[in-house]
Amino acid sequence: MIAKRIQPMAFQARRLYVELMFQVMGRALQAVSEVDATVQKDASALPEGFLFEMMVMPQGSSLIVEHVGNGRFHYHGNSAPRPVDLSIQFKHIAHAFLVLSFQEKTSVAFANDRMLVDGDISYAIRMTRVLNRLESFILPKLVAKRAVKEYPANLHLPEKLMSAARIYLKVASNFVETVRA
């Protein structure tokens, strides 16, 4: 009985968590592309104006970033200015929650058919590398190990802390700017 009453609240909390995580990740993608040369190198192979979307099917939360050139991303929130070039779609919000709460690695989620890729697979692989790199920076090592296939051996604490601080600062500034606007 109690479980039945709590369930809608749990679903709502899950929905809000996924939405918040998309907002953080979208801003963090923009930030990491301004901070990290490896991400810039990976992103620079994408065409200029390339729109990337991560979303929950059928019309749930989403994040959209655009490659604006030189390996830099711009976060567009949850609405795209034109049709996206690449979309990674979670089949259900429960699957998005598993990944965004770091209970399931992105690569495992792909292997488990939790997500669909609509667009060029090679770009999807590239974007997954960027997401992995981002998670390695912004998450504590113990948590990051649950999120990525392999924690990068060459990412040492000073670099991680410096980059994470810069990314979080940029994410916070972006949030403030959005609220002000």
Binding site: F110, A111, I121, S122, Y123, I125, R126, K149
Partner: peptide, 13 residues
Amino acid sequence: ALDDGAIMFNPKE
């Protein structure tokens, strides 16, 4: 090879 779809499912990064 690094951008090939199959690499996603390789057990090692």
